[in-house]
Structures are given as structure tokens and as C-alpha cells.
Amino acid sequence: MLLELSRISKSFGPVEVLSEVDLSIDAGEVCALVGDNGAGKSTLVKCIAGIHAIDSGTIAVEGDSHEIGSPRDAAALGIEVVYQDLALCDNLDVVENMFLGREKLRGVVLDDDAMEQLAAETLESLAVRTIRNLRQTVASLSGGQRQTVAIAKAVLWNSRLVILDEPTAALGVAQTRQVLELIRRLADQGLAVLYISHNLNDVFAVADRIAALYLGRMAAVLDAADTTQSQVVELITSGRSNGLGITDSNGVQP
């Protein structure tokens, strides 16, 4: 397993947001993380990304347990997060955005050629055909293209796990499909993808496994192929569904 979370708990003051959450993601698979608002999806992501420290539990990457204390630690482990609000600079072009903060230099001079070539290769490897001119400003791109740039930026750094926070929330139908195809390709290339979404159609279109959080607890982790949408809806809304889901200490569903 590339990433193994075991018994992760996190409280903000008296409020327990995550309670003994287990989740493992393998390289080459898309794991969707679903759950209602307040179920703890964002908190879980921020714990993995090093923004929040966990109270208890372990995070293991390729079998070795790691402390992730900052986003830099996460990046060093190959974990990259694409946040909902993209975090691109409109006035910079595609290449400049992809390398922002990690520019390649030749002496003190920016090595724009090398960066452009690497950016082109990365987009090529992701089979991105929608962005033709790497030297256009991000401002002139559509929402789907911008999302593509944000994802490509995350992939550029030999990352092993890419976490996507609602990447299709603001996109139209065709653009959503493009981004979903891109997500699929990331997994096909051997990356692990944790994909957060509210849209179950999108989830079923792209995910190998579906992890449903319910009030800070992991209700179930299911193979997408053996699951129906209504089961997932039940898990999201009540935490259980036909013998699946959260049980009390006696093994009985509450």
C-alpha cells in the first residue's frame, strides 16, 4: 500500500472531527472520498497534507510510518494537494505557474527553456491536448484548462499521491469529462489518487474504490464495481447500508 492511515483521530477542542479513521490507498488506483458536509473529508485531507497535526493514529507511506508536520513534509513524501480554489496566478503563463516557487535556475538566471520542456513533457505524458500554447497566460484559459494546469502542476514533482479537492465542482459537462479522464490517466500511470467529490456520477465514473465518511468515522470502503449509488447515498446520509457501515461495540448496527 502506498498510503496507509490507521486509527487517525483529530479533535478541535471538544469536537472530535475524525475518530479512528482507517484508509489505505494503493498506487495506480483512484480512491474517492465521499461524505456529507461536516463528515470530516477536508480535515482528513488536511491531516494528510500536513496542514493539521493528527492527535493519534499513524500515517504510513510505503510501509514506513511518517510524521507529517507541514505541507513541505508532505511534498517531500510525494503527496501533492490540488485545492478547490486552484491557487494559480492569472498573470503568469502555464509554465510559470507550474514551476512557481520551484523554478529551475541556471546560475541566477531562470532556465525557462528547461522548464518549458519539462512542462510540455508532463502535459504530453498526461495526454493533455487542450492546452496548446504553454506561453499563454492562465487568465486566458477556460475552467477545465485551469484545472488541468493545477493538476499537472501537482504531478510535476515526482509525486506519488495526488489529492484532488472537488476538482469538477465549477466545471461544465464536457470539461468535467476531460478532468475525469485526466484523473483516470494519473492512476493509470501508477499514481495514487484521492478524489473528493459530492457528485456521485463523477465518483462512479472514475473511482476504483469509494470511502464514505460519516460524522468523522469511516462508514465503509467499498469497491466501486460492487456498489450502487443508492448504497453510497445511504452510507453518506446514515452511515450504514444493508449490513455495511458503522456498528456499535456489540457489532450491531445502531
Binding site: 505541507p71 513541505r72 485545492y83 480554489d85 486552484l86 491557487a87 494559480l88 496566478c89 492569472d90 498573470n91 503568469l92 510559470e96 512557481l100 516557487g101 520551484r102 523554478e103 535556475l105 541566477v108 538566471v109 531562470l110
Partner: peptide
Amino acid sequence: HRTRFGRHLYAVGGNREAALRAGV
């Protein structure tokens, strides 16, 4: 136009939050 500092100036002016998250 040719140094990292210059690039970061434009980045800060374009989207300070993005620059911050990118480690500028």
C-alpha cells in the same frame, strides 16, 4: 524577467495566496 525574484514579484501581484502556497 530573468530572475526568480522577478518571477515572484509578478506572482505576488497576480495572486498573493497562490504565491504563498507555492512557497514564495
